[in-house]
Amino acid sequence: MYVFGNEVNPPLPYQGATAMSSNHSNHSNCPVYISDEVRNFQTFLIVPVFLAGLGLNLAALLVFYRQRSVWTDTHVYMVNLALADTTLVVLLLVRLYDSIHELQAPRLCSLLVVLHYANMYGSIFTVTAISVQRFLAVRFPYYARRAGSKKRAACVCVVIWLVIAGVCLVFREDNAPENWHTCFERNQPLPLDFLMSLELLGYVVPLLTMLLCSSQTIYILLRTSRENARSQALPGAGAGSPPRMQDHRRSVAVVGANLAVFVVCFTPIHAALLLRYLETSRDPQDCRRYVLLHNVYLVTELVATTNCFLDAVGYYFLCRDFRKELLPVRRTQVESQEYSL
C-alpha cells in the first residue's frame, strides 16, 4: 500500500516468489494509483486512529486488570476485544511504516496480513458474542448470572480464535508470499471460496446475529420500562425507581450505538471486497472502474480500523466498574442489579 504516492505501477512479485500465472494476472493490466483525496484521507485518519486506539485500549486493559477480582463474563469478552483491537492498532503503525518505506520481507508481510485480518474478525466475533450475552442477560437474567458464566465466556473466546485459526489454516496457500506484490497489496484477487468465507462467516452471520439479539434486547428493555412506568402510575405506588428507567433508556442507546458502529465500520469493507472481486473477474477489464474501486477499498479499510477506538469508547458504557475506575471523582449512582450493559 502506497499512502503518499500519486501513482503506483504494479511492481514485480517479491524476489524468490514464483511468477504470476496468466490466469491470475487480470488486474496487473491496470496501473494502480491512489487519488490525492484518498491519500489526504489516509494521512488525516491513520495517525489519530493509532494514537486514540492505542491509548484507549491500553487504558482499558489496565482498568480491567485492576478489576480482575470482580470480573464477570462481560469483562472476559471485553478483555478479548481489547487485546484484538490493540493488536490491530499496532499493525496499523506497521502499515504506515510500509507506506513510507516499503517492507521487503515476504514471509513477515504474509504473517502481518494474517494477523491484521485475524484480529479484525476476532473483534467482529467478540462484539457479536457480547451482543448475544447481553440478550441472554435481559431475557434469562437468572440463568445468565449463574456460577460459571466467566468460564463459558472464556470458552467462547477460545472457540472464536480456533475458528479463525482454522480458516487461516485452510486458506494458508492463498496468503503465500508469491500472492503479494507489496506487503499489503495482492497481485491477484481472493479466490471465490475464500471471499465467500469472509463475507458470510465473517460478516453476514455476525450482522444477522447482532440484528436479532440487539432488536430483542431493545424490545425487552423498552417493554420493561413501560411496565415500570405503568406500575409507578398506580395509586399508592411509592416513589419508584427513576434511575432504573434511566438505566434502561441508556442501555437501549448503548445497544443501538454498538449496532450502528458495527454496520458503519464493517459493511463498507465487505461491500468493497465483493465489488473489487467482481471487477477483477471481468474480461475485458475496465481499468478506470478498477482504480476507483481500489481507492474505495483503501478508504473502507481505514474506516474499519476506526472500530479499534470506538470499541474502547464503548467500554465506558458497557461496564460500570470501568466508569468508576476511569472517573473516580464522578462516581454515579447505579442500581444493585446490573444487566451487564
Rank of each mutant, 00 (worst) to 15 (best):
L274H: 03
Q285W: 04
D311W: 09
L292Q: 10
P235R: 10
Y297M: 14
E338C: 01
R323E: 14
V313D: 06
E338W: 04
G314W: 00
R250I: 04
R320G: 07
R330T: 14
L310R: 00
V334F: 12
C287M: 11
Q333C: 10
G240T: 11
R289T: 13
R331E: 12
C308A: 13
E338G: 04
V334N: 06
N307L: 14
C319F: 08
V261C: 04
R288Q: 15
R289D: 08
F262W: 05
L310C: 13
L293S: 03
R331L: 13
N258S: 11
N307E: 14
V329G: 07
H248T: 03
V263E: 04
I269R: 00
R323G: 10
P235S: 11
A312V: 09
D311S: 14
A304N: 06
N295T: 07
D321E: 14
C308Q: 05
Q246S: 10
V329P: 03
T300Y: 10
L326V: 14
A312F: 05
T280N: 02
L275P: 00
V264W: 05
V291K: 00
H248N: 09
V313C: 13
A233R: 07
V263R: 00
N258Q: 04
R288Y: 11
R330K: 11
V313W: 09
L274E: 03
F262G: 00
